[in-house]
């Protein structure tokens, strides 16, 4: 199950890196695949790409549907090579960005649901409710922790976090 998810996720670029990751091309150069971020995460959020042999082998990823990032900020200072840069405030994290699928999201289908809205660590900032019903992602505030994707009650999550690649932080 876990390996299947990893495989799907690794084929679906770009992957979600731990918080503080420098931009992807830089990240692959700096990360020595030592798993220290994995071994310092108290939530066991960080997994490792192991299903293939290429530049991404052994690099850390977060699979929000398994365990999202709870933004404890323990991993960035642990990185010995600067692939993860220390971050002071969790608002500054830019791991990824949540994308909402209006076609499957329950409120848009007429079923009341506030799972992502209520669990978002930036309550009423990163996910807002339009007309008190329809959830919407505020791109400037979303850090990409993946908690929304984790709690989405749909079997295929209607809100999915995609790794940010343009912005380093």
């Amino acid at each position: 199950m876990f390996r299947a998810i990893l495989r799907i996720l690794t084929d679906l670029k770009p992957v979600l890196r731990p918080p503080g990751a420098v931009k992807e091309s830089e990240f692959l150069k700096r990360c020595i695949r030592c798993r220290r971020c994995v071994e310092v995460c108290p939530f066991r959020s960080i997994k490792v790409i192991k299903s293939r042999i290429d530049k991404q082998t052994g690099t850390p990823v977060i699979v929000p549907r398994e365990v999202p990032c709870y933004l404890c900020m323990k991993c960035p200072p642990e990185c010995p090579t600067g692939a993860l840069k220390p971050i002071r405030e969790k608002q500054e994290v830019r791991m990824g960005i949540a994308r909402l699928n209006n076609e499957t999201c329950l409120p848009y289908q007429g079923i009341l649901c506030r799972a992502c809205y209520e669990r978002c660590p930036f309550y009423r900032e990163a996910i807002i409710l339009r007309d008190e019903i329809y959830p919407e992602v505020v791109e400037d505030k979303c850090v990409g922790c993946g908690i929304c994707e984790n709690v989405c009650p749909n079997e295929e999550p209607s809100i999915v976090v995609i790794g940010r690649r343009t912005d380093g932080r």
């Binding site: 876990f2 192991k50 082998t57």
Partner: peptide, 11 residues
């Protein structure tokens, strides 16, 4: 990885 993820990679 064997202990943490119960998985062995190709590498």
């Amino acid at each position: 990885d064997l202990i943490l993820f119960k998985a062995a990679g190709l590498e």
